[in-house]
């Protein structure tokens, strides 16, 4: 391996980081309201389209717009689709989120047709840098660093701010937290905003790597991230992040290290791994504590 080792690891970490952020975005909402939000896919796709629409504008403008669009979309879906269903059983909410996801996807097809659109939001990061004597792709390195910074920022937010404390409390026992004065609407809105922020960052970094966007752009990453949250342990943020990271790293490493004729079956190997994990730890790697709702 030698000099190939560092680029492969950076590659694996950048994919793992994106899955971790996506799984966290899903996990944040799940932990406070037991909604497995399939529409997270569109929280990623829609800002990627914003990048496409604004591709003639300066990077700062298009990225800010992408973030804003994601946040507004998340708040609107929360208000219009999920708030009326609050407290309903998780299966029904999951189905509702499928419906929201499909609806937005159709809107995108209607507005932009279903062909792929080129995007290149981070053209400034084309090229490579030397790292420990190896040439490393600048975009991938930036992705790894961004993911790391966001993970740390989110941890600090959850651990050391009043909002974060309220969110963790709501995740453990929603009714008890409300009895202590935690406002349900505010906690849930905060979860949606954070989830949208993470989704927008994933949209920027992922579309910069793939170079195009299409109506099912977010779906491909969200399906894998869903699997990752199950491996990590539903309702546990650390588990979601670790699960996402592992799935990304393992699938990238398989891609790099499997003999070429086995590479097409890379996903099959990943899912095999998932099945093995769930056979031995049906609750995931990090089972969630108190999933209780009522007092």
């Amino acid at each position: 391996m030698g000099s190939a080792f560092i680029p492969i690891m950076i590659d694996a970490f950048s994919v793992g980081g994106l899955y971790a952020l996506t799984a966290l975005g899903i996990g944040l909402i799940f932990s406070v309201m037991r909604l497995a939000n399939f529409a997270h896919a569109e929280f990623v796709t829609v800002p990627a389209y914003a990048l496409f629409v604004l591709s003639d504008h300066p990077v700062v403008v298009s990225i800010s717009a992408a973030v804003l669009v994601a946040v507004v979309l998340a708040l609107v879906t929360e208000r219009a689709a999920f708030r009326p269903l609050r407290g309903i059983d998780p299966a029904t909410m999951l189905i509702a989120s499928f419906a929201v996801s499909m609806f937005i996807q159709r809107l995108l097809v209607f507005a932009f047709d279903s062909r792929i659109k080129p995007v290149n939001p981070l053209a400034v990061l084309d090229g490579s840098v030397a790292l420990f004597g190896a040439q490393v792709n600048l975009l991938k390195l930036t992705t790894v660093i961004t993911c790391l910074v966001l993970l740390i920022a989110l941890t600090v937010f959850l651990k050391y701010t009043r909002f974060g404390l309220e969110m963790r409390a709501a995740a453990e026992d929603f009714t008890m937290s409300r009895l202590l004065g935690v406002r349900a609407n505010r906690v849930i809105a905060t979860a949606f905003v954070l989830s949208a922020l993470l989704a927008a960052v994933v949209a920027v970094l992922f579309s910069a790597q793939t170079g195009f966007v299409h109506p099912r752009f977010g779906l491909q990453i969200v399906i894998i991230a869903f699997v990752a949250t199950v491996i990590g342990g539903l309702g546990n943020l650390l588990g979601a992040a670790v699960g996402g990271f592992l799935v990304g790293v393992v699938s990238t490493l398989l891609q790099a290290l499997l003999p070429p004729d086995l590479r097409p079956f890379r996903e099959a190997f990943v899912f095999l791994l998932v099945i093995l994990v769930l056979l031995f730890r049906p609750q995931g790697l990090f089972p969630a504590r108190g999933l209780k709702e009522r007092i």
Partner: peptide, 28 residues
């Protein structure tokens, strides 16, 4: 009133079964 408002009016409930937030610290 929504339930998060009753504590703002000055009513605190210690529910049956205690309901500590088990994963949060005592201080939290």
């Amino acid at each position: 009133l929504p339930l998060e408002e009753s504590v703002r009016k000055g009513i605190a409930l210690v529910p049956e079964g205690r309901h500590v937030l088990p994963g949060l610290t005592v201080l939290e």
